[in-house]
Amino acid sequence: MEPLVELRNVSFRYGTAPVLDDVSLHLHRGQFAALVGPSGAGKTSLLKLVLGTLQPNQGDVAIDGKSLRNQPAPHVGYVPQLETVDWNFPVTVEQVVLMGRVRRDGWLPWHSKAAKREAHAVLERLEIDHLAGRHIRNLSGGQQQRVFLARALIAQPELLVLDEPTSGVDMRTAENVLHLLADLNRQGITILMTTHDLNSAAAHVPWVVCINRRVIAEGAPEDVFTDAVLSETYQGEMMVIRHDGMIIVHQKPHHHTHRDILPDPVPGHPAPRTAARSQESAEAPVTTEVPHAVAG
């Protein structure tokens, strides 16, 4: 079966700085995949290559078998990072959602009743129909994420691309967003997202791709999330704890105390705090080292 998204030996650089080097990747219809890697690893650039807003210096990107050379990707819904949105822009939730069907709209400056009905149906599907008339600034983080998801869904995408959908929201909202994405995936939408949240990816995403300028590994989280793969991806010592079917990823603790890093906790006033510290606490320095049993 032909993959929906295909990157063949793609290299990309900003000016002279290399960002991606000889990346080959396939994403089949119905897949739900997350790109993970440190900041600057090329995750967002890879998404933009898939969207067609960046062009590779070498190699080729194809959607549904068609090369994206100088044209945007067809049938794609995109949810950008919330941090990049201008929240003061004077638009309502409904207006933002309707932007997603611009490809299908005619030249009239107003939206048809059918278009508005469609927008409300999508908003209802995401349980935010009651917010249609509200300014985008006056929403919670989770609601904001859903609004941009609604804009992507109204475009009737085969492929949904999301840049950091769980960043800038609390843990519970992040979990809700990932559950929602899993639901959409079950309804047949192929999903490609980036995330820094390895634990959520391990719990909710069936396929992960570890990248740091090149693909380090890809597969199911239980196969890919190992100390060795993640340490290579993040260029630092990473620790994977497997407990009761759960995968918990953590950076390996350093063997030094907080005082080694911050010798002067209150700059300019070290003496009074030292004097006030009890003998007991002075003998038991605060440490980031975890007990052996947990580190396992």
Partner: peptide, 23 residues
């Protein structure tokens, strides 16, 4: 402005994303 109203609004709001959606 009337004819390109929707495209102009989207481009002004976020040009890069508008391009993804076919503007």
């Amino acid at each position: 402005i009337l004819v390109a109203y929707k495209q102009l609004l989207f481009t002004t709001f976020d040009a890069e994303v508008a391009q993804v959606y076919g503007v």
